[in-house]
Design a protein around this nucleic acid. Structure first.
Length: 554
RNA sequence: GCCCCCGUAGCUCAGGGGAUAGAGCACAGGAUUCCUAAUCCUGGUGCCGCAGGUUCGAAUCCUGCCGGGGGCACCA
């Protein structure tokens, strides 16, 4: 509707120019049609007169008055006013909102979908937690954001793939294997000195006793360097399995799992680095290989191969991103923890060095979750041993509440996740507010069916009966949905959906308390059930974009 | 020291050039013969961190400062 209003205003302006009423000036990009904060200002407000005033050398109010006169006759509007410094405030005639319901209904389950993505291929890479421990709450936030974003992009007409990058190479793997080995020795009664920098969590002991029960004590007398690989493999297998299970229970699925090890084993990493070297982006100094990232926007050059001959994690990342680029995506989205922000310029440098525009990659930094327990921050490091896992949160509050919670904030703001609050007051959680709205509407239809009433063919429904302020407000909110989905997708901001849904649910609750859907008036009942049907569908669709269920009863 | 994010109501946060800055929570009171009271209604709060600048207009953009968080390895 907003787009239609904007087009109508701009058409009126061009006509006025053609008739010589206004001097010949083009409409600036700063022309905006917005929904004003206050209802008294109408449904839409245009700043066209304000942004034209200086060029037209006329007062904004005078320009606005001229435009208002022309728009007044348009049947789309029932009120056009000049207000404040020169705003054009416009009220849509109710019939347009009401008739809109047919369009929404016809769109069915695809209402909200659009083709702004034009089928462009997008890859969203997220979670990508190292297989050295269970997923914690912070990973949960990344998982919720990434998965919801993928759903949004899909609805907006992008061709989306989700990928998980597994860092299964490097020192951390040695540390992991060694940690398990020591716990294995402990299992058989050996006294060991367990270093502080090793993985402290109890899951290490679980893996060790798992190996012990399967293989017995045959590795007790084998030196670590001879059996390290075995311990690493067992640990990675065990942990990966638990990560898969956690994500599955969280409702998050990936199209592909990409192993860093593959980049090393296939020689792709070496090939990538040597090609960069041939093109002058890599040089040798102090026995190490350096990437000239400082010439590509990073603050300094970065080591890709240490003087001991081992490639850095960053080298693998260069190769990984090249691999992604060569797979032909139009856009790469990486979702990282905000503690990796210093990494953005060097990865962008790697993108540029390989001849791609840097905006081919967009990095979403998800701020860490401040986990609160008993009014105190709770520790959350994998090595510290004391951390709250995603599993624990899932068991405590459930998938829906957890996902919604993670998506109620912009991802670059810190999120306080108060375990006590979430555990003890689950009914205060906003997710139930939205789900309840959906359940209430389901209940309305159950009740109607009990009375032998079913929704008639829309062609026989008189939508003009939907004329209370609450109904018009609902119709307006429903109208916003497709635009919101498209804009949130392009901005990569899934949290906007949760705000919208809370607002829509609120309007439904207000309406529900003031009016009855099912009444003695058959025509009115039909019209209201029609509204209920579309509202229910938008709630369902919106919750689906967040990966949250829409129950028929609570 | 340098870089990134944040600073808005008692708390958690929306709003990110536009008119009188909003919501939830918390607090107090009220609403159900009738579609689910996990709901609704009523009640009041703000130097929008500070100081400059940009302009018709700044919570919003720019600069500096203050405060909080995070990051600055030949670690991963």
């Amino acid at each position: 509707m907003r787009i239609r209003v904007q087009a109508t205003i701009e058409k009126a302006f061009r006509e006025a120019v053609a008739e010589g009423v206004f001097p010949e000036i083009s409409i600036p990009a700063s022309h905006q049609v917005v929904c004003p904060r206050q209802e008294a200002f109408g449904d839409f407000a245009s700043n066209l007169a304000l942004v034209l005033a200086s060029k037209a050398r006329r007062s904004p109010r005078e320009l606005a008055a001229c435009l208002a006169e022309r728009l007044d006759d348009d049947p789309l509007f029932n009120r056009v006013e000049v207000a404040g410094p020169g705003f054009l405030n416009l009220s849509i005639a109710p019939i347009w909102w009401q008739k809109n319901l047919y369009t929404m209904w016809e769109a069915g389950d695809s209402y909200g979908d659009s083709d702004v993505g034009k089928g462009r291929r997008v890859q969203v890479e997220f979670v990508s937690a190292n297989p050295t421990g269970p997923l914690h709450v912070g990973h949960g936030r990344g998982a919720a954001v990434g998965d919801s974003l993928a759903r949004l992009l899909k609805a907006a007409g992008f061709d989306v793939e989700k990928e998980y990058y597994i860092n299964d190479v490097g020192n951390q793997m040695k540390t992991l294997g060694s940690s398990v080995y020591l716990r294995y020795l402990e299992h058989f009664g050996h006294k060991v000195d367990f270093p502080r920098e090793y993985y402290q969590g109890d899951y290490i002991k679980d893996i060790a006793s798992d190996i012990a029960s399967r293989e017995g004590d045959k590795y007790v007398d084998v030196p670590l360097d001879l059996c390290l690989t075995l311990f690493i493999d067992a640990a990675v297998r065990y942990i990966s399995h638990s990560i898969h299970r956690d994500l599955q229970d969280f409702g998050v699925y990936f199209d592909s799992w990409f192993s860093e090890k593959v980049l090393h084993d296939t020689g792709f990493l070496v090939k990538t680095i040597s090609e960069l070297q041939a093109r002058g982006y890599i040089y040798e100094q102090d026995g190490a290989l350096w990437f000239r990232s400082s010439e590509l926007g990073d603050e300094k050059d970065r080591v890709v191969r240490r003087s001991n001959g081992i490639f850095t994690y960053f080298a693998a990342d260069i190769a990984y991103h090249r691999h992604k680029l060569e797979r032909g995506y139009d856009l790469l989205v990486d979702i990282w923890g905000a503690d990796h922000h210093g990494y953005v310029p060097r990865v962008k440098a790697a993108i540029k060095a390989q001849g791609y525009p840097e905006d081919r990659l967009r990095v979403l930094l998800v701020q860490l979750v401040n986990l609160m327990e008993g009014g105190r921050p709770a520790a959350m490091t994998t090595r510290g041993g004391e951390f709250v896992t995603l599993r624990e949160v899932l068991d405590d509050v459930g998938r829906d509440a957890a996902r919604f919670m993670f998506l109620t904030r912009r991802c670059d703001s810190h999120l306080d996740f108060d375990l006590d609050l979430v555990k003890s007051q689950t009914q205060e959680n906003p997710v139930y507010y939205v789900q309840y709205a959906h359940a209430r509407l389901s209940s309305v239809f159950r009740k109607a069916r009990d009375k032998g009433i079913s929704l008639a063919d829309p062609g026989h429904i008189d939508v003009s009966l939907l004329n209370t302020p609450e109904e018009i407000r609902l119709l307006k909110q429903l109208d916003l949905f497709p635009c919101l989905v498209a804009e949130s997708a392009i901005a990569l901001e899934p949290y906007r959906i949760s705000y919208y849904l809370t607002e829509l649910a609120g309007q439904l609750h207000v309406y529900y308390n003031r009016h009855r859907f099912v009444s003695d008036d058959p025509d009115l009942t039909q019209a209201r059930l029609f509204l209920a049907d579309v509202t229910k569908r938008v709630l369902h669709k919106g919750l689906g974009l967040l990966g949250v269920s829409a129950p028929d009863s609570l």
